[in-house]
Nucleic acid binder design. Sequence first.
RNA 1: UCCGACUUAGCUCAGCUGGUUAGAGCAUCUGACUGUUAAUCAGAGGGUCCGCGGUUCAAGUCCGCGAGUCGGAGCCA
Length: 449
Amino acid sequence: MSRYHSYKTIEQLPDLIGQEVTLNGWVSDKTDKGKLCFIKLRDGSGIVQCVAFRPSIGDELFEKAHSLTQESSVSITGTVRSESRAPSGVELDITNINIWQISKDYPISPKEHGTEFLMEHRHLWLRSTRQHAIMRIRSSVVKAIRDFFDGNGFRLMDSPILTPSACEGTSTLFETEYFDLGTAYLSQSGQLYAEASAMALGKVYTFGPTFRAEKSKTRRHLTEFWMVEPEMAYFDLNDDMDVAEDLVEYIVQYVLKTCPKELAAMGRDISKLEAVRRPFYRMSYTEAVDWLNKNNVRLNKKQADGSEIQIDFPWGDDFGAPQEEAIMQQFDKPCIIHRYPTEVKAFYMKRDPDNQKVALAMDMLAPEGAGEIIGGSQREDNYEELLARIQHENLPVDAFQWFLDLRKYGSVPHSGFGLGVERTVKWISGAEHIREVIPFPRMIYRIVP
RNA sequence: UCCGACUUAGCUCAGCUGGUUAGAGCAUCUGACUGUUAAUCAGAGGGUCCGCGGUUCAAGUCCGCGAGUCGGAGCCA
């Protein structure tokens, strides 16, 4: 039998009681009690306590067990035994130990550490229980996303990462030389390409890394993050919101089903996630502004002399994090806010035929302070309207010619959105900082490891 | 870019109004222990008090400049 099939893992142990197995892993902790030695072995699938008792295993094997240090790599052979005193309910009585390497001076002790220290040792921090749980939840979130789209008639159509110009013209992008063709930019969104793809395959999604060179210093921003962007031909804004709700409900319920241990390790309140069932809440931007003003959520405004006054929230301003947080405090599941003022939204969003002042845009806000996880819209499908918006924003028309072509050859109503993978994982896992939910975060002052 | 906070042992921190030789817990090493879950007990080693300059009889402590880190705003997923 191949190693792939014969390799036993810790998560399989409850089905292997009474059998002798060999586990391959790393020592996460060791406790000496004289003639008794407990070794906690970690193999990526779980942790199990292995027991060495000097009188029953002999001096030589006991000394081997005794010599192990934190993060030493070992293969331990032993008999699986049900044990109520062990943390996982299962224990291994050691019959043999093969030491691959004794680890010396492992920097992360089982005690408290600050995040700066831990981020410097991110390549090792990933081995800890909490980070391990987050990464497994992340893996489940990504699986849920792909299952959802693959199972609902969507096709994966990845967008390029190197792009000739800024997609939206608003945020700062990373630049790089591109042979003799001038400057290229790292993509901030695959959306424009997703629109072209949707005209070819109907329902598509792109899934990949995205880059923003903004100097953001908050616990919900990264300079490199993963985004999934579905785009659907013949879908209007309402259809778009339906897809967004279905997707988020599916992701949350999938993680609940597949990651109960990981959520428990995070100390996550499961009932809050169980409540994430359709329908979610929806309100228009205008209703949201009214709600803010009715509930006395005032806006701090700086005056010319530097002093601050509090004013009613003016219709037309974009919501900041404080407004979104205030609105979400009343909700126990996500809320979609739709029909934002045209001026604060991107050029490619279609205006509402019933009210030219607002765009057919929508953002989904997650509860528990998680904030915005989705931004999307129905797209402008009229050639002249789109051209006018590009010119109005002073964007280079030449660079967008291919995008305008989509409005020339069989234009149809279409919609889509982008979901931030890390913000979703942060919300579901209950991690307090976004840098914990991606294996190797990229932030303004950190690119190592 | 703007506002605020922090920087003392490997790690997490205390150190008052400036005043002997710089403190604790954990980690590490040595020893004891048959049930530990962040074990306990006894002992040992471990310091560029972020850097530079200034005030002072005397600076970890006060002042100035610089660096690094963290949080918030804006940008947005």
